[in-house]
Design a protein around this nucleic acid. Sequence first.
DNA 1: TCTCCTTATGCTCACTGTGAGCATTATACG
DNA 2: CGTATAATGCTCACAGTGAGCATAAGGAGA
Lengths: 313, 313
Amino acid sequence: MEYRVVTWERVLNSSVTIRLDAVLVAVTEDHPRVLTVRPKQRLDGIPSGPLDVERDKTLELGLRRWIRQQAGIEVGYIEQLYTFGDQNRGIERTPHQERIVSVAYLGLGIEDSPSIEARWRDIYTLFPWEDHRLHRPPLLDDLLVPRLFAHMDDVTWTDRVHIAFGAGSMQWDPVRVLDRYELLYQAGLIAEAFHDQGRTPPASLQTGPAMAYDHRRIVATAIGRLRGKLTYRPVIFELLPESFTLLTLQRTVEALHGIRLHKQNFRRVIERGGLVEGTGERTATGGRPAELFRFRQDVLRERPRPGVVFPRR
Amino acid sequence: MEYRVVTWERVLNSSVTIRLDAVLVAVTEDHPRVLTVRPKQRLDGIPSGPLDVERDKTLELGLRRWIRQQAGIEVGYIEQLYTFGDQNRGIERTPHQERIVSVAYLGLGIEDSPSIEARWRDIYTLFPWEDHRLHRPPLLDDLLVPRLFAHMDDVTWTDRVHIAFGAGSMQWDPVRVLDRYELLYQAGLIAEAFHDQGRTPPASLQTGPAMAYDHRRIVATAIGRLRGKLTYRPVIFELLPESFTLLTLQRTVEALHGIRLHKQNFRRVIERGGLVEGTGERTATGGRPAELFRFRQDVLRERPRPGVVFPRR
DNA sequence: TCTCCTTATGCTCACTGTGAGCATTATACG
DNA sequence: CGTATAATGCTCACAGTGAGCATAAGGAGA
């Protein structure tokens, strides 16, 4: 840390501290995971640290530095997610501290053993209402949706709940992760909503453990963005090894979207879409051996928006 | 401006100045426009100013404040676009000035007479290679693409040019506005590329006038984002009056995408998609009177991603 | 009033993509 | 040699889409 002698310092009131936050996602054995760190006995958070104005030439380089320092891993794919700059974001500041603006990034990779302070956490532990692979979580209609409706009787609110949670005639839309988190937060059904008011959340909440600051909101933003992006960019392959079976590919997509897909149709779309090419090799597991595939780079030269399926229902 | 007495100031080297940039888009008589301001005799830029840490509760409110101050208008729809934080962004700073991080936003509205310092500029004057409504601009294949190829003979580079500019077997993809701008910039075909090196751009460049700083890059980002978003969110209606004919709607979409659409099919998609509802009224212009339509809010409750068409070719 | 011009609207047809299933084929394991 | 477990092939119905042809309804002028 650097100190400097100043006598009259002109205090620009546009001066803030930039923080860089990283939502790192991996999928291991059908479990989507996010990397968390726990500095100083606090709640789990995502890797995060201030921009080093002198050394970090770009925000992304600064972010990679923090990820290296806090989790001891290197990430390949990184994209900018969103910049959070609201004054009130559940970040307690001492009076003379600068205002904080956080630039959040989404990173994708294969799970790697991180340093001791970091760990991979299951995304659906943090968002139990998001996993619809087996079935729509009973939690939703038994507890959350009724409580959401009870929270407010306004038409706009009711509409928003319907749309976000696929209630009534609306379909469940995997992409609306942030909408759902926000509504639950506003209805006081998320632990952070209590923390932010200095209160203790009741044990009856079944909406997953709190994360530090607004990190769970940032993760929600990331998951929503990722689910959307899968449909028009071949980012899924950032989460897979060099070669993989089509079932592995499918399970990875399903894990992220939180829904099940029709196997044969999935294969058809992937193969006919030219997203993959066979390696000739095949696996020897469970039943009939499966062919191993690899991502086909050429697809980028053929189709404008290559991605994996997004079923309507 | 505020001054404060300090003796030993701990200089956090994560302290930056946040700037808020606004790309405001409107479509008037089939011309997509962006609002520019020209402070202090410099080049045209977009509305922009520092975050007021004390007063601006959120970044968006700060942005609206600057738009009001610099252009004298109020904007309805605003969404965050991207945060630009690279150290080298063509923003000259005096040695003791803080590093600048710009959070850019995209705003949509109907053209309104702005204050005297501001004016609406045609987007295709700034990006002459982007308007394919009449035909693919000859500029592209006569001048730009050959020069791009001449600039570097690397496979990766050639591929990028093909993909971005729809050369060879690739289709023109309206969304890749930023890719194209970046490639042209890197190949030294954009006036800003010269300015950033302290040189004067040759008059032979036909790639539109320079804007201040990296504002043209930010506008490019905005146009690309907007073109993409049109396909899955009904944002087009932010650019239209309460009621409109289907042809006006189509022309507005075409103006933004920079391509022509098949009229009957466009109508079919819009109407059958439930995006609009007739008002019963009809216009009396040119030929047969057209029915006036309005945006149908209910579509949000019916379809997960309602947007206007995006033709493959 | 009739004709031409212009834009709105209707409708058809071929083809592609997608949702759902049924059927068949390889291997591993008892 | 069965049986369980996956992988693969294939079909069918139907919804969307790209392209056009055809018709309708006003205004402007001859």
